[in-house]
Amino acid sequence: MFIFLMVVQAIVASLLVCVILMQKSEGGGLGTGGSPTGFMSARGAADFLTRSTAILATIFVVLSIALAGLAVKTIGSRDLDTSLERVAPVQKAPADPLANPAPAAGPLPAATPAQ
């Protein structure tokens, strides 16, 4: 189901990009001219592309929410992967770092007298 919805979302996204790119930046639609009335006039094309954009955008958002829900439902029930703990055990820090201070690396250098 997840793969099917991903394919549908990819198709919707590509259609959305095509519909948006067909519109003029002024909102004129295809702008091919023709009669001022009718379905494929400049005004009719703009209305059609605007409606198509709104419908495709709504479908895209709904599919995105559905895919996110499916992903959480699928992945949310898994346990954490503890395979790395067997390879390199984690060293835990002491509860109180001042209770067991680390030994000094060596003697401190002697101070040089001021001249």
Rank of each mutant, 00 (worst) to 15 (best):
T74D: 10
E85Y: 12
P94S: 07
K92F: 14
A57N: 00
S83R: 15
G29T: 03
T58P: 02
R78N: 07
P109E: 01
R86S: 13
A66S: 12
L80W: 13
L63F: 08
L84I: 07
G44V: 06
L49T: 03
L30I: 14
P109T: 01
S14G: 08
L49I: 02
L56H: 02
V72T: 15
P97N: 06
Q91F: 07
A105M: 06
I59P: 02
V90D: 05
L21V: 14
V90K: 08
L108E: 13
V7H: 10
A88S: 08
R78P: 04
A114S: 11
L56P: 01
M40K: 02
P94A: 09
C18L: 14
S77V: 15
L30P: 05
R51Y: 14
E26D: 15
D79G: 10
D79S: 09
P109D: 02
L30S: 03
G38T: 07
A66D: 06
A88R: 09
D81E: 12
K92R: 15
S25D: 09
T37V: 10
F60T: 01
L63V: 05
D96M: 01
I11W: 12
P107N: 02
G27S: 09
L108A: 14
T112E: 14
L5M: 14
M22T: 06
I75P: 02
P97H: 00
G31F: 01
F60R: 06
P103C: 04
S35D: 13
F39R: 07
G44Q: 08
P94W: 04
A42I: 00
I11R: 11
A105Y: 01
T53E: 06
T37H: 08
Q23V: 05
S52T: 12
V19E: 11
V62D: 08
E26W: 13
A46L: 03
A111Q: 12
M22R: 05
G28C: 06
A102Y: 04
T82A: 13
G76A: 15
A54F: 09
T112G: 05
A71G: 08
R86A: 13
V7A: 13
F39Y: 11
V90I: 10
P97C: 06
I55K: 10
A110W: 03
T50V: 03
G28V: 06
I75L: 14
L63S: 12
D47A: 10
G34E: 04
D47M: 10
I65R: 04
L98P: 02
Q9F: 04
G34S: 01
G38H: 11
Q9R: 10
A114R: 11
V61E: 00
D81H: 04
P36D: 12
A105F: 04
V12Q: 03
A42Q: 09
T37D: 10
